[in-house]
Design a protein around this nucleic acid. Sequence first.
DNA 1: CGTAGCCCGGCAACCGGTTGCAAGAACCTT
DNA 2: AAGGTTCTTGCAACCGGTTGCCGGGCTACG
Lengths: 319, 319
Amino acid sequence: MAATIKDVARACGVHVSTVSRTFSAPHLVNPATRSRVLATADDLGYRPNRAARALTTGRTFNMGLVVADIANPFFPPLIKAAQAQARGRDYHVFVADTDEDPRVEEELIRTFTKQVDGVLLCSPRLSNRMIERLAEDVPFVVVNRRIKGMPAVLMNVAQGAKHALEHLTGLGHRRIALVSGPIGSWTSNEMQGVAAEAPGLDLIFFGPNQPTEAGGLAVAADVAACGATAVLAYNDLVALGLIEGLSAMEIGVPDQVSVIGFDDILPGRLNRPKLTTVAMPAAAAGRMAVDLLLQSGGEGATVTLDTALIVRESTGRAQ
Amino acid sequence: MAATIKDVARACGVHVSTVSRTFSAPHLVNPATRSRVLATADDLGYRPNRAARALTTGRTFNMGLVVADIANPFFPPLIKAAQAQARGRDYHVFVADTDEDPRVEEELIRTFTKQVDGVLLCSPRLSNRMIERLAEDVPFVVVNRRIKGMPAVLMNVAQGAKHALEHLTGLGHRRIALVSGPIGSWTSNEMQGVAAEAPGLDLIFFGPNQPTEAGGLAVAADVAACGATAVLAYNDLVALGLIEGLSAMEIGVPDQVSVIGFDDILPGRLNRPKLTTVAMPAAAAGRMAVDLLLQSGGEGATVTLDTALIVRESTGRAQ
DNA sequence: CGTAGCCCGGCAACCGGTTGCAAGAACCTT
DNA sequence: AAGGTTCTTGCAACCGGTTGCCGGGCTACG
């Protein structure tokens, strides 16, 4: 059995409250006593039980991180960064995967509620109303979604989409396919919003689609058939699936069709052709979300992080 | 404030112990009373506080999952599967990233100790002795490492390496480079062990290396210089870095050099040429590790999962 | 030398549950 | 009708800490 505060108190000949204060309010205990306590604590390998502490203080020093799909390469850098930032603040992170299922997402949040100080919701699939309801029980920070009065970390998708379209028009493209993601995805909406305002362009919309390679593969034929010379894809996975599908139909990228993705995930960097993409600051978003949660405790600040168009090899001049 | 057991007891006109038993020992309470309690609990949105419960029962229904690098594409499928399996058992999972640093790993485990029922250690970088010491305080399941008397989930790397070498010799390769991973990596040792027993082969050993794309890039020149016609790489990332580096030197894969990786990560499947690799059952390992932890509670069962050689496009006949 | 003020440490209640013990009620048995 | 079971529920201690309050000892000051 691991040592408890009582063991330390007994071994040191002081009251438990003194031991407690040694750790949580050091200025209230005599330096001499404190070092004695610390010494015996170290001897016994004592570490305060965080769960027990949480019971009285109300702070668990845990946070939840809920993502749609851990295996989607967009998330790991975000998770890694969030977790590292949290550790620096002495926080532990529960990571949970919803499998893109809103019901799982809700249940997960509900079971987290009592044992975390807050939850980071990344690209949630729940309705705004449900999120607002759940927010009554536990502070949230939402990533990649805008919800009134709720702290959020956003990525400037609109700006990225704008740059991407400018890049394409600069290369002479006019007829451009827009391959969106799942229904209700904030990112998809942002992209569409920008596209709708683009003057003089001939845009063809495809969606909804799975946000995966399979989703890209599945629409490849339709995209090829529509006669577009360029594609703006929901994310890099979709873009890669699309390239895969186009190649299978002997349609060359970028020679015949240009493709741009979003996210800047590792497979895109390693792919041939290397993927032109709008880089999302996933790691920065993870760090920022943690800080926002710990600072605001649920008050509604919004941080918008810049995106950057990274031109590689999957885009070229229109025929 | 969320409802507590007292609120339910008061609202229902029973003692807290009755409410408690309604949830944790239903057979001890009169069916009529129970349904009344359940009704009011539902009304108030009551959910038992797991941390408080853990204080008396000693079971937290949490587990820790410690990996070297979340962003390494090998891990996300494992994390996802482990987390899903755990959720099915009503467990939550703390995920932590050690950044390949043994000291961080140790500290992490120490802080986890009190608030989890066990820890899944994936490809740990700590010494056996240290792991054994830490195991006195919290049950472990180790993935991809063999430690006496400790439950482990292993992947049959030796078998995979053997198949890979057979595949290469079958293609006429004799001089083969072995590009290993970090020092102390169990996987590296297994690979070397098999290689050492391979008859009639001319093996050149390179290592240690970072287990990343950068690691592969960095040794590409040395590998090219050594005159090997084939390479067995520590993992797919290293293999991809290697291919990248070789391409930059105008060395074609698989025309001039064949490359085999380990893991079967997504970027390898999307790469051109598609990577020939030894597939590691990461998801199965994650599930199995969770089950082992919950069943054995630290007793030393060992599960070995099969690997499979997946021949794609990065290997070909020797010149 | 008396007293006011400060520092320090002990006491005990409390956080939200769990659980061994015992008492009362209901139901049987003879 | 008395005595014995079996159910059901309340009581209270306990898990490992935290924290408001109080009192004892020491210092400082008049």
